[in-house]
Design a protein around this nucleic acid. Structure first.
Lengths: 139, 139
DNA sequence: TTCTAAATTAGAAACTATTCCTAATTCGGT
DNA sequence: ACCGAATTAGGAATAGTTTCTAATTTAGAA
């Protein structure tokens, strides 16, 4: 609790209860949650919480580079607490999003083909190792 | 017209007028259009066209690997006629999506960290060269 | 060419993620 | 404790997409 409050204060973000709880959730759950997942997990503990607040909070976290936004799936936006730059794997079977310890040649580059790079997203899609194992048992 | 009809027939897709027109549009416009862009461009020439048909058609084209889906922007899906594998650049200023002649070390790989790869998406975001030039004149 | 069954299309309605709006609440400094 | 400013909650609005159903079109058989 204090840890997350401190992180917010250090960045100059007012440490409201809702923001602290959302930040804590993101730090403890590396599942690249959607707004619904965050809301669903927290509204029991923070009964007055509204989805608007989750949206507002994530917008602020984005602005202050506390979270990254993933557009790896087609229907909703996913969020993750900013760590080292890394790529992602989306499993078409179970829907999980996994962090990959893979990085891009351009990670440190300032530009590609004359365009100024501000962010890089590497999305791999397919079947995750866990689902591949399950598949073996079936077929 | 005949060219696109042939492409559809070759793949085993019934070459309806709407499908031919949508395929032609995708081939001639490498702007990674949204459904709205496709609909907006075609409904003048194909007055009875409905958005549902655009959605249906793109779903079929996807199924038959005629188009790729891009989730590079946050609010809508974009489509492109399948060409060589390549990465994309999204300009935060003008909103354009550009093809990059950049490819990934994993492009030919079957898997990463035990996960089976079926598709790779490389999205770069920042300011495109054209906008950078405009900026120079301003500041 | 005509007929028929199956596939496709159009348009409206439904759905869902996100944004917008406004009043009530909370926050931090005084 | 008080006050102005920031934040929050919740409902309404919006936009992209999907679903539903009837009408139309298609391709193949007669």
């Amino acid at each position: 609790m204090e840890k997350y409050k401190q992180i917010l204060v250090d960045r100059g973000i007012k440490p409201t209860y809702q923001r602290i709880k959302i930040l804590e959730y993101l730090d403890k759950n590396h599942s690249h949650p959607t707004v619904d997942m965050i809301y669903g997990a927290l509204y029991k503990k923070v009964p007055t919480l509204s989805k608007t607040t989750v949206y507002n909070t994530l917008d602020i976290f984005r602005e202050y580079d506390l979270v990254d936004v993933l557009t790896i799936t087609e229907s909703e936006i996913r969020y993750e607490y900013v760590l080292q730059p890394h790529h992602h794997f989306f499993c078409k079977r179970c829907g999980k999003i996994l962090d990959l310890d893979v990085n891009c040649v351009y990670q440190e580059a300032m530009c590609v083909e004359g365009h100024k790079i501000e962010a890089i997203h590497g999305y791999f899609k397919g079947i995750c190792s866990e689902c591949l194992l399950k598949n073996e048992n079936v077929s």
